[in-house]
């Protein structure tokens, strides 16, 4: 007979806690979830509903005091030509930035997911994340210099003889300006650059989950590369593309710094919110403006779900 015990002795608090959690599995769940739920529920959703409530108030046009009674008057103001203009401009910019990011991000994400191994994978992550380590403002101002009339882009265009072509393009009313850094094209370029990592990473994660044998199966069954892309890669990567586009789209919708520094000072939603709650002191209209991106994102997600973007999750 052996004298080794069947039950090991308890070794203090750690063992007692482990035993308690083992007997009551829900307790551990509660302990783990309580702080984030408090944060999300109270601090985040609380302030969000305060904002929502604010948007149903209105401002007294003479005294500038917020009248705390529920009305849709502020929302009616949103559809006034000048405000609608801001919304449509922001929406168009966000859509263009998202599409451009997706197109540029795809080959990078595809390469990283399919071919990069070991050290090259590390180089990929570093390359994508590195810009996120430096200040957003520094990057935006750096781009202002790059895109300026005396900047490297103009210099390069002049060098290869494309200067006049670029100058002609900038004369275009719709997106032109006195230089790239003061044109909507410039705003667009900087938006695409700044939000690119948020598109690449979820896309790469989605592509990583597509097994190589699935692409081989497609080719094996007679599909061309283009058909494989359309019928297999794209649908399977769609959740990642949608996740990425949620970032690029919503971040562009809400940004108020890039349009201030780069572009022709045309107003965007973020900028409008910033100005209405600050200098203009019109908190209800600022809140109503802030609701717009939320509603747009909800519609966007509903469409994405309808398209089956989350089927392959």
């Amino acid at each position: 007979m052996t004298s080794r015990p069947a039950i090991l002795p308890e070794r203090g608090l750690a063992d007692r806690l482990t035993a308690t959690f083992w007997r009551h599995p829900r307790l551990l769940l509660a302990v783990l979830l309580a702080p984030p739920l408090l944060w999300l529920g109270v601090v985040y959703l609380g302030s969000l509903s305060a904002l929502l409530l604010q948007s149903f108030f209105s401002i007294d046009e003479f005294s500038g005091v917020v009248k705390q009674e529920l009305t849709l008057k502020t929302y009616a103001e949103l559809v006034r030509a000048q405000n609608l203009d801001i919304i449509l401009r922001t929406l168009l910019m966000a859509a263009l930035v998202t599409v451009a990011s997706a197109i540029i991000a795809f080959p990078i994400a595809y390469y990283a997911a399919r071919f990069a191994r070991g050290r090259w994978k590390a180089v990929f992550y570093l390359g994508v994340m590195l810009p996120l380590w430096s200040s957003y403002l520094v990057k935006v101002y750096a781009w202002k210099l790059i895109l300026a009339r005396e900047g490297i882009v103009t210099w390069f265009a002049d060098h290869i003889g494309a200067g006049p072509l670029m100058a002609r393009a900038l004369e275009e009313q719709w997106f032109g300006g006195s230089s790239l850094s003061t044109s909507p094209v410039g705003t667009f370029i900087v938006f695409v650059y700044i939000w690119m990592p948020y598109m690449i990473l979820p896309m790469q994660a989605a592509l990583e989950r597509v097994p190589g044998s699935m692409l081989e199966a497609s080719a094996d069954l007679g599909a061309t590369r283009a058909q494989t892309f359309r019928t297999v890669i794209f649908p399977l990567a769609l959740p990642g593309i949608v996740a990425g586009s949620i970032f690029t789209f919503s971040l562009t919708l809400g940004d108020y710094i890039i349009p201030q520094i780069i572009g022709n000072s045309a107003r965007f939603i973020g900028l409008a919110v910033y100005q209405f709650q600050g200098t203009a002191g019109n908190l209800p209209l600022a809140a109503a403006f802030a609701v717009v991106p939320i509603v747009i994102m909800l519609i966007y997600l509903a469409i994405a779900k309808r398209m089956g973007a989350f089927d392959a999750l």
Binding site: M214, D220, G222, A312
Partner: peptide
């Protein structure tokens, strides 16, 4: 894709976003 040879893959490699019917019809679809 131009070899008249088809493969049953070890992990089957069925397309998860398609129905069984669309999976089977895939070769004809393309």
């Amino acid at each position: 894709n131009r070899r008249n040879v088809n493969t049953v893959f070890q992990d089957y490699a069925l397309f998860p976003h398609m129905t069984v019917r669309d999976n089977v019809a895939y070769g004809l679809m393309v």
